[in-house]
């Protein structure tokens, strides 16, 4: 028992972390980190748990993430089951009361939004379907705008002393965002009605926003990797359809989309999917600039 007392004694003697003015934000995905940065500016210090090369469905609850969750004042994630495989472990083991489910420090971007593709029937025979609906909302800037509105309120609630600054940052961001959205929509007008193939159902909101139609996915079922057989089936399914592009995220294996490109001729395009996915996407504006440009330049 002496060891135990000694251990706790030693640890409590560790220098206390200097009081930091900045709100510590743990973002599950880079897009929410970037949005919090836009609204928080110098008032927040943002840590992103994942990066564009990583699949947010499959992240390990590794030690560094536990340490960051323990110290967070605000946890911002997509929600809707996207992080079901790792976030519960981080929350349960963090010992951080502020970011537990339902607390002000717990913010799920998809909360209160109408999600597309909510399944009528849940059966794993249909793959690893997102039970709450498609969570990949960051592909639609209108969704980002809706999240920004809620996040502004939440930041003011957590840090009321700086409410005016958050409001000011939000107004500035929203104004620039509305202008940018109008520009993207103008630029992307030629994409309307185009037929698309995606690796995973990760671009549903992008298609919805720009009026494109998904005619197939490389994954035979959500979360199931493409196989030689499933690709041949897809090829048959696409017969007679004029596919505009085959899109994938940076973390998807390129081989399946390249194979399909070789067989149907439509270009295989890697879209940023999130912040940092391609060069020039280090903020939300760049993210959509590059996404729209990549799609327009596909042909």
């Amino acid at each position: 028992m002496k060891y135990l007392a000694l251990l706790f004694g030693l640890l409590s003697a560790l220098p206390a972390v200097p009081a930091q003015a900045a709100l510590k934000v743990f973002a599950c995905e880079p897009e929410w980190g970037a949005l919090t940065q836009e609204l928080g500016g110098a008032l927040v210090s943002v840590y992103s748990a994942t990066m564009a090369q990583q699949d947010p469905h499959h992240i390990e609850a590794r030690p560094s993430l536990l340490a960051r969750t323990r110290n967070a004042d605000l946890l911002i994630c997509t929600g809707a089951g996207l992080e079901a495989g790792w976030l519960p472990v981080l929350l349960a083991q963090s010992g951080n009361a502020k970011v537990q489910t339902g607390q002000p420090g717990w913010f799920m971007a998809t909360d209160g939004l109408a999600l597309l593709e909510k399944p009528i029937k849940l059966d794993r025979a249909m793959g690893d379907v997102h039970a709450a609906g498609n969570p990949h909302i960051q592909q639609d800037p209108h969704m980002i705008a809706a999240v920004a509105q809620r996040l502004n309120q939440r930041l003011q609630q957590i840090d009321p002393a700086n409410a005016a600054t958050y409001q000011h940052n939000y107004d500035s961001f929203n104004q620039r965002w509305q202008v940018a959205m109008a520009r993207w929509e103008r630029e992307a007008a030629p994409l309307r009605g185009k037929l698309m193939v995606s690796h995973h159902k990760a671009f549903t909101y992008l298609y919805h926003w720009l009026g494109m139609t998904e005619v197939g996915t490389l994954e035979p079922l959500p979360g199931i990797d493409p196989s030689a057989q499933s690709l041949v089936t897809l090829l048959q399914q696409l017969k007679g359809k004029s596919v505009y592009a085959i899109v994938r995220a940076p973390y998807n294996d390129a081989r399946a989309s390249e194979w399909l490109h070789d067989h149907i001729g439509a270009p295989a395009v890697e879209l940023p999917f999130t912040i940092g996915g391609e060069s020039g996407t280090d903020n939300l504006f760049g993210f959509f600039d590059v996404t729209v440009k990549r799609l327009l330049e596909a042909h």
Binding site: L7, V17, P63, L66, A67, R70, N71, Q93, G95
Partner: peptide, 13 residues
């Protein structure tokens, strides 16, 4: 009972 240290380096006792 477990305790996570308030550091960026993960330390659990």
């Amino acid at each position: 009972v477990t305790w996570l240290a308030p550091t960026d380096q993960y330390l659990e006792v």
